[in-house]
Write a protein that binds this DNA or RNA. Sequence first.
DNA 1: CTGAAAGCGCTTACAG
DNA 2: CTGAAAGCGCTTACAG
Lengths: 334, 334
Amino acid sequence: MARATIDDVAKRAGVTKSTVSHALSGKRPVSEETRRRIDEAVAELGYRPNPLAQRLATGRSGTVGFAYPIDLESASGAESSVLLAASEVISSAGFAFVLFAQPDPSAAELRRFIESGLLDGVIVAQVQMQDERVRALCAAAASFVMMGRTADNSGLSFVDVDIDGAVEAAVEHLVDLGHQRIAFLHEEAFATAAASRALQAYERACARRRMRLITPACLQSASGGRVATKGLLEHQPEISALVLSSDAMALGAYAAAVDLGRRVPDDLSLVCLAKSQLSALAGVELTYADLRYADQAQLAAAMLLEILGESAAGDRQVLLEPLWSGGESTAPLR
Amino acid sequence: MARATIDDVAKRAGVTKSTVSHALSGKRPVSEETRRRIDEAVAELGYRPNPLAQRLATGRSGTVGFAYPIDLESASGAESSVLLAASEVISSAGFAFVLFAQPDPSAAELRRFIESGLLDGVIVAQVQMQDERVRALCAAAASFVMMGRTADNSGLSFVDVDIDGAVEAAVEHLVDLGHQRIAFLHEEAFATAAASRALQAYERACARRRMRLITPACLQSASGGRVATKGLLEHQPEISALVLSSDAMALGAYAAAVDLGRRVPDDLSLVCLAKSQLSALAGVELTYADLRYADQAQLAAAMLLEILGESAAGDRQVLLEPLWSGGESTAPLR
DNA sequence: CTGAAAGCGCTTACAG
DNA sequence: CTGAAAGCGCTTACAG
C-alpha cells in the first residue's frame, strides 16, 4: 500500500487537511476532541509528513551542508571525529547532513546546492585566508558558520582555536628550556588559514627572541616528517628542537631522530600542534597541543542551528584555547 | 531579485511552462525556433529548475545515502578515502551525498529517511553477518548496494573483497616459511562480516594444517596491538608469526616486538590484512594485503547508480581480489 | 476553533 | 509540435 498522505488522515479524522496540518505543527489551537481523532488517524495510518512537500511549501530544506575538503595524503583518524561530531549535532536536530568532501576550489558544487535552495545552512571547514566558498556563501546570503576563520571575519560567524597562542606557547616553552635553534616544519600544499597563522606566529616569536627562522617545508605525513627531519638535521645538526604541525609528521620526525642516533627528548625536543594518538608508540609520550577539532565541529554545528532557529543576524565568534598534553618529548638543551 | 521559475521562462519565451519543461528535459520534440527562444530566456534569467519541486513532482529525490558507521577508536585515514571515493562517484552523477556516520544499531535514522522518500538509494558499508540496516532496506524495498556482504546474500547486490582468500594466502605463506605457531589477532567489539569471515578462514586454515588456534582479542588500535602482542609473546614465546587485521595494530605489534627485543622479520613475522601506510616507519616494509576499500566504495557507488538508472531487478555481486604488497616483514622460521 | 482555497515549482498524461 | 489542466503533498493567509 502506498504511503498515507495528509488527506488520508483528514478524511479518516473527519476534518480538513488544514486542521490536520495545524494540529501537527501546533501553529493553531485545535480542540481536544479533534486533536484526539487526528492523533488516532495518524497512528492507525502510520502517517508521517512528506518532507519534500513540506520543503516545497515552506521553502526550508531541512538540510545542512558540511564543506570539508579531505586531503587524502594527510588524512588520519581526525577527520572521522570531526565528521561524527558535526553529524551528531546536526542529525539529532532533525536535519539531514550532506557532506562535501571533494576538494572543490571554485566552490561550484556548493554554490549549486545553495542556489537550488537545497541547503538551509552550511558549515565550512578547512577555511583559507581568502576562501572562495566563504565568498560564494556571502554572495548568496546563505547562513553558515566557519570552522577556522578567514583573514577578515567581520560579520562572519566562526569557531576556531587560538593557534597563534599555541605556537607562541610552544616556542616560549622551548626557549625556557634553553633551545635557540628551533625549527618549524610546515606543510605548504594544503594552505589553510590555521597553517599560515601558525607559521606567522612562529616567525613573530622568533623575531622577538632574535632567533633564526628555520622553516623547512614538509609533507603532511609520517614519511614526509621523516624525510624532512632527516634532511634538516643532517645539514644543521645544531637544531635542538622541532615544532611540528601533525601527529603523523611527529611520528616521522621521531623515526628520523632514531635513524640519526639522536634520542628524544635528550638529543631532540619535539612539540606537536595536534593531538597525538600514535606518539605513544614512538617510545615517548609526545608533548602536544590538542587543537580540539571535534569540539570545534560540535560547537560550529550548534552555532549554525542557533542561527537557523533565530534567523537573527549578528556574528558569533568563538576562539577555543588549545589543550596541552603533559608529554615528555621536550627536555632542557644539553 | 527572487529566483526565476519555469513560469518566468515560459512568459519570456512566449510559450507555456509545459513546453519549457519538455524542452529542458528533452522528453518531447520541440521546434528549433521555440527551443532557441527558450534557451535564450533561460540564459537571460539564469533559470535553473528547483530540485525540490522536481522531486515532489517526480517522486525521485536525487539523493543517495551512505550508511557508514565510523568507530572512533579505530578510525584511521582509510575512512576518508572510502568517503571520498563514494562521494566522488555519487556527486559527479548529480546526486546529493548524505552521510550516516553515526553508529545506529537499530537503523532508525536510515529507516526514517527511506520511508520519507528522501533517498533514492543507499550504500551500506561495514556490513555485518546479520545486518539490521539491510533488513530495513529490504523491508522498504529500497535500492541499495552493500560494501561487504551478509551471511545470506541471495537477491542482494554487493561489492566485497575475498577476505577468506587473503587469510588463507597469509597462512599458507607463513607455513611455507616453516612457521607453525601463527597467531591471529582479532578485534571483537566491532563485528563486521569481514572480520568474522577472516577469523573463520584462519580457523579453517589451521585445521587443515593441524595447527593450534591462537586467537587473542585485540583492540583495533596501535596501543591495542602493542598490549596484545606483548602479552601474547610473553606467555607464548614460541609464537613466530602474527596475522593482524589493521595497520595500527601492526604498528603496535612491531613496537611490542621491539620492546621484547625481537626483530622483525628475523624473530617475528608479521602479515597485515589491510593496506599499511604507517609501517614504513616501523623500520620494515610490512607485508600486507590491500583490501581495496576505496575501490570497493567506488564500485559500489557505480553499481548503485546503474541500479537506479535501470530500475531493473537482479542482484549484482562483485568479489575483488586483495592486492598483496611486496613487503619484507616475513622470513623463514629460524 | 475550523474550512475552503491558493500556492510552493515542477512534471506529465490528455487533447489538439 | 504545443497548450490547458491536474497533480505531487504539504503550508498558510483569508474567512467565518
